[in-house]
Amino acid sequence: MKELRKIPPKAEITREQVSLTAFELTRQAGFEVLTARNIAVKLKCSTQPVYRLYKSMEEVKEDVYKRTVDFALNEIKQYSNEKNEPAMNLAVGCLFFAQAEKHLFRLLFLSEYSSDYTKYNDDLLNEEIYQAFLQLDPQLCTMSTIKTREMFKKLSAYWLGIGVMIHMNSQELTIDDAVVMLEEMYYVLKCSALSKK
């Protein structure tokens, strides 16, 4: 008589797997395609594990947004050019993120979800970039908080505008041109702020 082989139990899907899959789906195709069904297709399972691990798709989206913030901060901090001041490297890192991670950039800076999320939660991404900005340039710490916040706000508006042009593949602007423009604006803003101390 043939011995029956036991089929090993199917590995149970974890919350981390769902979260990572949802993040990768967003990164590849955009936040708009984030549904329990699309996550399940990627995981090769039914939607049941998604709803067992999360109360709703809103909770999945919040998880993906937080993961995107962490990923963006890590990516932005990777850029380094020894000719630049460290705070300038951070701003340039934002431009490279806009170019390389189009769907994630759109989620963090151009989506309704982002503005709704930051209405009810801390704007961790901007706050983290601001804190890194302060720590990386000791001269900024000699200015008042109001002045540094004002300089950061102006620089952020400037890099975000350039970032959108890069994100949209504007042919008039190369990444090299964008970096030069950002460097020029950074030094203008910094000199102006330091002279008004």
Rank of each mutant, 00 (worst) to 15 (best):
M1H: 09
K2D: 08
R5D: 10
R5M: 10
I7N: 13
K10I: 14
E12I: 13
E12Q: 15
I13E: 03
I13K: 07
E16K: 14
Q17E: 15
L20M: 11
L20Y: 13
L20I: 09
F23A: 12
E24I: 14
L25W: 08
T26S: 14
T26Q: 04
R27F: 08
Q28D: 14
A29F: 14
A29M: 11
G30I: 12
F31K: 12
E32Y: 10
L34I: 12
I39G: 02
A40E: 12
L43D: 09
L43F: 11
K44L: 06
T47C: 06
Y51N: 07
R52V: 10
L53T: 02
L53V: 10
L53F: 07
K55L: 11
K55P: 01
V60A: 06
K61P: 02
D63M: 09
Y65A: 07
R67T: 13
T68Q: 08
T68D: 08
V69W: 08
D70P: 00
F71D: 08
L73A: 03
K77R: 14
K77H: 07
Q78E: 14
Y79T: 03
Y79C: 05
S80M: 04
N81Y: 08
E82F: 00
K83P: 00
P86T: 01
P86Q: 09
A87L: 03
M88D: 02
N89F: 05
L90Y: 04
A91K: 02
V92Q: 04
V92P: 03
G93C: 05
L95D: 03
A98P: 06
Q99M: 06
E101M: 02
H103E: 15
L104I: 10
F105G: 06
R106G: 02
L108F: 07
F109A: 09
E112W: 00
Y113E: 07
Y113T: 08
Y113R: 04
T118P: 00
T118E: 12
K119M: 14
Y120M: 04
D122L: 12
D122S: 15
N126H: 12
N126M: 11
E127I: 08
I129F: 04
I129E: 03
A132G: 06
F133K: 02
Q135G: 09
L136M: 15
P138V: 09
Q139V: 03
T142S: 14
M143P: 02
S144N: 03
E150H: 13
F152N: 03
K153E: 12
K153F: 10
K154R: 15
K154L: 11
S156I: 05
A157L: 11
A157Q: 12
Y158K: 02
W159M: 01
G161P: 00
G163K: 05
H167C: 06
H167W: 15
M168C: 11
N169W: 01
N169R: 09
S170I: 07
L173E: 04
L173V: 13
L173C: 05
L173Y: 11
T174N: 03
D176S: 14
A178I: 11
V180Q: 14
M181R: 13
L182P: 01
E183D: 11
M185N: 09
Y187S: 01
Y187R: 01
V188A: 04
V188C: 05
L189D: 04
S195Y: 07
K197D: 08
K197P: 00
